[in-house]
């Protein structure tokens, strides 16, 4: 868990300058394709009940 805590320390709050440089990728073709693929898999195979309910 300590290793995970160390990883979590990396976040920064965005600054005004950086925000202005960051593009909006909501309509990016790559991300859209990935979302469609995810939906396709989950619509076809679903999520296992034991995963949703934490049962073993």
């Amino acid at each position: 868990m300590e290793a995970l805590k160390q990883v979590k320390k990396g976040k920064k709050k965005p600054t005004a300058n950086l925000e202005s440089e960051l593009k909006d990728y909501t309509n990016d073709a790559f991300f859209k394709k990935k979302r469609e693929r995810a939906k396709e898999v989950l619509d076809k195979y679903g999520i296992p009940e034991h995963f949703l309910t934490n049962s073993k």
Binding site: A3, K11, K12, P14, E19, L22
Partner: peptide, 19 residues
Amino acid sequence: MHLEKYDFIKGPEKHYYHF
């Protein structure tokens, strides 16, 4: 265990992280 990583920036869009 020390994990070296890049600092990421949470974009103005809700669920984007940039590094």
